[in-house]
Design a protein around this nucleic acid. Structure first.
Lengths: 249, 249
DNA sequence: TCTTTATTGTGTCAATATGACGCAATTATA
DNA sequence: TATAATTGCGTCATATTGACACAATAAAGA
C-alpha cells in the first residue's frame, strides 16, 4: 500500500480489485497478507500518471493472477474521509509495527476506485503477491480475516453488486472455458447466488436469452449421460451486457 | 472548473453531477455555460480534503439547485488520460480565450467521479451558476450543445445507467411530491424511458411491487375523474432500493 | 456382458403473469 | 344538464414460470 514512484502516480487515488474465484461450490476472494501489519488487503495499487484508470486495474489483475482479458467491472468509489482509519495507523506506528515514515504514507487520504472480476480459480496457478504483501490467499467470502482500511466494506459492496448484476447481465465469458456445459454454467449462478436452481428451468431460461450456441460436442468423463457443450454467441453476449437480459418496462 | 482553494482540495479528483429534470414530458439536463470558453459543463467541483466524496456531491447539488435530500446515485469514475482534451485547452490559450495560467490548471489531469440525480424541474426556482460559469440551463437530452472535456460522454453514460436502474430500483422518492397520483408516477417512467406504457398495466405492476400506499385523498382540478393520491411506503421503498424490485433467479 | 448409478435432455401441466383492451365512474367545463 | 377527458376496475387470450415425470446414456461394478 505504499507508492513506488510517487512522482509518477496520480495523486490521492488508489485502485482496489475484488477478485472472486469459483472454487467448486465456494465463492472465494483473493486477498493479500500484508508484510508488517497483521492484516489482509485487497489486491490493488496506484494509477500511473500516464495511464487510464481502467487500464491500470486490468494491469493489477494481470500482475496478481496472470489472467488477461477478464471482465473487470468498476463498481464504486469509496471516498469516506477516514476510510484508511488513521487511528489504527497511529497505533501501528506507536507499537513500532511500521516505521513513522510508513505510517505517514498510510495516513494520507486516498480515495479508491473498486473493480470486481469473477475468475476461474483453476486458471490461476499461483497468485503473486506484490511488494507490500507476503503471500496471497483465496479466502471464502464468509470467513474473511481482519482486513485493512475499509476493505471488508468494499468486498461486501462488490458481492452485493455482483449478485445484482446477475439479474440483468450475462456471466461466464472468460470465466468458463470456451466450451462449457449447462451444469457448469448453472454452478456459476448457484455458487454466486448461494441458491439451488431447478436445472430444467435454468436451462429453459438461459436458452431463452439466446446467447448460447450448442456445439455438436459433449463432455465425457462422468459416469452418466454426457452433457452437451455450449459456447457463447459473442455478439449477442456483448449486446446483452449493454442492453440487459430482461427489461421490466 | 478551477480550484478555489487548491491547498484544501483532494488532489486529482473532481465530481460531476448529471442532474436530470423532468419538465413535462421532456427529460432535461442541467448544464452551465462557462464564462470564457464557448462551451458548457456539468455542475461539479472538487472535494474538500476534510469531506467525504458523497457529501461533497450532495453539497454541489444543493449549491446549484437549492435541493436537499435528493437521491444521488454515484455511477462511474471517468479516468481516461486525456479526458480533459489537452489539445483543446492549448488552443484556448493560443487564441487567448483563457490565460496561460488558466490553461495550466485545466490541462492538469483529473479523474472525475460522476453522480446522477433526477429532480422535479418545478422545485428548482433558478439554478445558480458557480464561479466558473455565467448561467445555467435545462437542456433537452437530445439537444446538447458543445460540452467541455468528456462531459457529453458522462451524460450519455448517466442516461444509460438511469434507464437500466429503472429495471430494478424504484424511483420517485424526493422527486415527486409526498403525495402523488398514479399518472404522475407513470409520467416519470414514460419520460425517462421515452416510451408509452399502458396505464392499466402500469398500475397493476406498480401496485404489485407493494411500495405504494393509497391515501384517502384525490387530486382535483382536472376536468375528469380525480385520481387517487398515493404515497411511498418508505420502509418498503428503501428495501426495494437495496434488494431490487424483481429478481431473475 | 449386463446391471447399476448418476445425471442429462426433453417434455408436461397447473398456476401465475403479461399485454391488449372494454366500460362505468367522476370531475370540470360548456 | 350534457360533454369531454381521464380515471379505477375488470376481462380475456396468451406467455411465462415453477414443480416435476421420464427416457436416454456414460462409466463403473457384478
Amino acid at each position: 500500500m505504499k507508492a513506488l514512484h510517487l512522482e509518477k502516480i496520480h495523486p490521492g487515488l488508489s485502485i482496489d480489485c475484488v477478485v472472486f474465484g469459483l472454487h467448486g461450490d465456494t465463492l472465494k476472494v483473493l486477498i493479500l497478507k500484508l508484510k508488517k501489519i497483521d492484516k489482509w488487503a485487497l489486491p490493488g495499487g496506484f494509477v500511473a500518471a500516464t495511464e487510464a484508470v481502467d487500464t491500470e486495474a486490468a494491469r493489477m489483475l494481470k500482475d496478481r493472477t496472470g489472467l488477461d482479458h477478464l471482465f473487470l467491472q468498476q463498481f464504486h468509489l469509496f471516498g469516506a474521509v477516514d476510510r484508511n482509519k488513521v487511528s489504527d495507523i497511529r497505533n501501528f506506528v506507536d507499537q513500532q509495527i511500521i516505521s513513522a515514515a510508513e505510517g505517514e504514507v498510510l495516513a494520507q487520504r486516498f480515495v479508491t476506485i473498486s473493480y470486481y472480476a469473477v475468475v476461474d480459480y483453476a486458471k490461476v496457478q499461483a497468485p503473486t503477491p506484490d511488494y507490500s504483501s507476503e503471500f496471497c490467499e483465496w479466502c471464502p467470502l464468509k470467513e474473511l480475516p481482519s482486513l485493512i482500511h475499509d476493505h471488508r466494506e468494499i468486498i461486501a459492496k462488490a458481492y452485493q453488486v455482483l449478485k445484482r448484476d446477475l439479474n440483468y447481465q450475462p456471466i461466464g465469458y472468460n470465466l468458463l472455458p470456451d466450451k462449457f456445459t449447462m451444469p457448469e454454467l448453472q454452478a456459476v449462478y448457484e455458487t454466486i447466488l448461494e441458491k439451488k436452481i431447478d436445472r430444467r428451468n435454468f436451462r429453459r431460461k438461459m436458452l431463452s436469452f439466446d446467447i448460447l450456441i450448442a456445439t455438436d460436442e459433449v463432455r465425457t468423463g462422468g459416469s452418466h449421460k454426457a452433457p452437451i457443450l455450449y459456447k457463447f454467441d459473442e455478439q449477442k453476449y456483448q449486446a446483452a451486457m449493454v442492453g440487459g437480459l430482461v427489461s421490466l418496462w
